[in-house]
Amino acid sequence: MRRFCSGSRWLVPAASLALGLGLGAGLSKRGRQPSQLGAEAEGLLSRLPVVPVVAAATTTSDLAARGGVGDSGDLAKYGLPGLSLLRTRESYVLCYDPRARSALWVVEQLNPATLSGSSDRAACDFRSDDSIHEYHRATNADYKGSGFDRGHLAAAANHRWSQKAMGDTFYLSNVAPQNPHLNQNAWNNLEKYCRSLTKYNKNVYVCTGPLFLPRMEADGKMYVKYQVIGKSHVAVPTHFFKVLILEKSSGEIELRSYVMPNSPVNDKIPLENFLVPIESIERASGLLFVPNILKRTSKLKAISAGSNLKAITAGSTT
């Protein structure tokens, strides 16, 4: 799937990541419908060509109206225990995971206009997201003394066009505990690379999120284990992903998808070594990233490890 430097002390064993990700079916086998995201999905969401499928409706009234909880809606009359939490801001769209105290995914749109401006990062402060119930939101105190950085999912430097847009990236709902070496080196390089792609593409859509991958323990069984930090028990991902959707001026669309372990990574390792098939991330995350992409282009290129191109047309793979 990827080429790792043999014996490198910087990376988790490649075998455990490969087991966690697995190989998915071809893109040409997708027959998916776009997600129904509810009336609150406004702003940036309306401008995005694709967003990951959310497996729940936005409101109980939506469910009752569709007859999904009985004709009279009796099962939902006192409210349902939990639904996917969608947040739209000037700079990104986010789907929140209350259990992990972080996002399932964050989608942002990059182009030369979003990267230009006089916004000042020093004027921004990390803060709790008051739109999330207090039981389920992270605080700055959770990160203090934890040994982890407050790692942006939608990067602050991607949104220099507006001070508010940059400031919105400092909500802790857009943050996950990240190894400091990874955050400040290899992951930072990947973020810079995403920005550089705006020079050659009409738009660059970036979807970022955490992964919690299994690994084999001494008893030969597979387990999903992760640390939690702070009184809020903020989940520490085992890995992070980025899925890039590149819109060419020609109308062609290109996919690139990356996974990095949440541990120190040698920043001299080429980024292409972290390319994985998008299906691998879909299997590991429970998300479907581009359910309607073949409705928007007659030709799609997915770049996998080693810069191998897989050209995809509706109904067939070549």
Score class of each variant (00 low, 15 high):
212 F>I: 04
199 K>Q: 15
165 A>Q: 14
179 N>V: 07
183 N>H: 14
177 P>F: 04
216 M>E: 09
214 P>Y: 03
201 N>L: 02
176 A>F: 01
159 H>T: 08
215 R>A: 07
166 M>W: 02
181 H>W: 14
171 Y>N: 15
177 P>G: 09
232 S>G: 07
164 K>T: 15
179 N>W: 08
168 D>F: 05
226 Y>H: 07
227 Q>M: 11
194 C>P: 03
194 C>L: 13
151 G>N: 07
215 R>W: 08
143 Y>I: 05
187 W>D: 05
167 G>A: 15
170 F>H: 11
202 K>Q: 11
211 L>D: 05
153 L>Y: 01
166 M>F: 03
143 Y>E: 04
197 L>H: 07
212 F>E: 01
184 Q>H: 12
154 A>W: 04
178 Q>T: 03
149 D>P: 05
185 N>R: 13
148 F>K: 01
184 Q>G: 15
229 I>T: 02
156 A>W: 09
168 D>V: 13
229 I>D: 03
151 G>V: 06
173 S>V: 05
228 V>R: 02
212 F>Q: 04
187 W>F: 08
174 N>E: 08
156 A>G: 09
177 P>E: 05
222 M>V: 12
222 M>R: 13
191 E>H: 04
169 T>D: 05
148 F>G: 07
160 R>H: 15
168 D>C: 09
232 S>D: 02
189 N>M: 13
163 Q>D: 00
217 E>N: 13
166 M>K: 03
199 K>S: 15
157 A>V: 07
229 I>P: 02
152 H>P: 01
216 M>D: 08
230 G>A: 00
160 R>K: 13
212 F>G: 01
189 N>L: 14
207 C>L: 10
220 G>A: 14
219 D>K: 07
162 S>H: 08
184 Q>W: 12
172 L>H: 11
203 N>W: 05
224 V>Q: 08
162 S>T: 02
190 L>P: 06
147 G>I: 10
175 V>I: 06
180 P>R: 04
205 Y>T: 13
154 A>M: 12
232 S>W: 00
175 V>A: 05
214 P>T: 03
177 P>Y: 06
213 L>P: 00
161 W>G: 12
169 T>F: 04
228 V>F: 00
157 A>P: 00
197 L>V: 06
226 Y>P: 01
208 T>K: 07
218 A>F: 04
151 G>M: 11
215 R>V: 02
168 D>G: 09
164 K>Q: 15
156 A>R: 06
201 N>I: 01
146 S>N: 00
157 A>R: 08
154 A>F: 11
194 C>V: 10
221 K>C: 10
184 Q>S: 09
213 L>R: 03
208 T>H: 02
225 K>M: 11
199 K>E: 12
164 K>G: 12
187 W>C: 00
217 E>C: 11
173 S>Q: 15
170 F>I: 11
205 Y>C: 08
227 Q>N: 10
175 V>R: 02
171 Y>Q: 15
175 V>H: 00
211 L>Y: 07
192 K>W: 13
161 W>E: 14
166 M>L: 00
230 G>N: 02
176 A>Y: 05
196 S>G: 12
175 V>G: 01
150 R>P: 06
215 R>K: 09
